[in-house]
């Protein structure tokens, strides 16, 4: 199919760009859209973010993973101007973005979504979408009083919004309050709304959190589509299946720093990543008592798991069916 070949070529292009790159933190990319240098954020004595150097390749889907408390969301907040960094600078398309307020960051083409979805509940779905459009003449108070000045632009925005709503299968909800949508639909709406601004870089903070498996597949498709349309995607995620499925490159953070980068299929076997997730000495030799105790715990766990296996197997099969 035509779409499929385009799909493959974009993915291939993205993968080719990463070909032969070292799996080192801060490795230079051939065509970075976002370059970060020495960003530091401290909360009192805690250093939440301390990233020496990082580049995000244009036209790729890059995943940002890491254990809880690794500073991923804080890092996101720094880059998008929602929190001020204590030190460091970063550029987007070569333009300096450090210290730029959030709304200007968004206008430059770097938009984000939130971990806790921010649907504007008492606005209808289509009003949510219209809000995402940039440079609206009617958003000035005085121009707003004269409908003739903005009606034309508004109808263009509305048709663009309806197109996106159709794509995200929300068109049936067009005139419902956004607050009446389900959690997954809100995620879709937030993503669609972000696209109204025609961004170059889309930053998704845990797009799959709280979304049921059926909707996950459709969300994954939409994220892949963003790359298809030439956008760059940087997303935070915990679900490793999803990371392996859609990302072209993975950046791993732990304790505020980038500890490793690499292609998704090899990154999880990187010893630094295993250490970050499981603790540095998880395979170091133990004393006799500790070994004994661990053995007991493992046995208890195995018996518990054996009791549950039947159920798990079934549910996995069901979700497999939905995907097929």
């Amino acid at each position: 199919m035509h779409a499929d070949t385009g799909f493959q070529s974009r993915k291939a292009a993205a993968l080719a760009a990463f070909e032969g790159l070292a799996s080192e933190p801060g490795v230079p990319k051939p065509d970075p859209i976002l370059v970060v240098d020495n960003v530091v954020r401290r909360f009192g004595g805690l250093t939440a973010v301390d990233v020496a150097h990082l580049e995000v390749q244009r036209g790729s889907i890059t995943a940002l993973i890491g254990p809880n408390g690794a500073g991923k969301t804080t890092f996101f907040n720094q880059l998008t101007g929602f929190d001020t960094a204590d030190a460091g600078e970063w550029t987007f398309n070569g333009r300096k973005m450090s210290g730029v307020p959030a709304y200007k960051v968004a206008r430059q083409g770097m938009v984000r979504t939130f971990q806790l979805t921010k649907a504007l509940s008492k606005l209808t779905v289509v009003e949510n979408m219209r809000l995402g459009a940039q440079r609206q003449r009617g958003e000035n108070f005085f121009a707003g009083l004269i409908p003739q000045l903005w009606r034309g632009q508004e109808s263009l925005i509305t048709s663009e919004a309806e197109e996106l709503l159709t794509r995200f299968k929300l068109i049936a909800k067009r005139d419902d309050f956004a607050g009446s949508l389900s959690g997954g639909q809100r995620k879709l709406l937030e993503m669609a709304r972000a696209l109204m601004g025609n961004p170059e870089l889309v930053m998704l903070d845990e797009p799959m959190a709280g979304v049921n498996p059926a909707l996950t597949q459709s969300l994954l498709g939409h994220v892949k589509n963003l790359r298809e349309e030439g956008m760059t995607v940087l997303f935070v995620e915990h679900d490793m299946d999803m990371v392996r499925d859609i990302s072209d490159w993975v950046i791993v953070m732990a304790q505020g720093a980038v500890i490793a980068e690499g292609p998704p299929h090899t990154i999880m076997s990187d010893p630094r990543v295993i250490d970050a997730y499981l603790g540095a000495h998880h395979d170091a030799p133990l004393s006799a008592e500790e070994a004994e105790q661990q053995l007991h715990e493992a046995e208890a766990e195995l018996t518990a798991e054996a009791d549950q296996t039947g159920m798990d197997g079934n549910s996995r099969k069901e979700s497999g069916d939905e995907r097929g």
Binding site: F82, G138, N140, F141
Partner: peptide
Amino acid sequence: SPWGRVLKAIREDEDAVRALG
């Protein structure tokens, strides 16, 4: 007008509105 829409959106969640530029 779109101006009023921005106000109502701010009432709902100002961070979301900031993220939309």
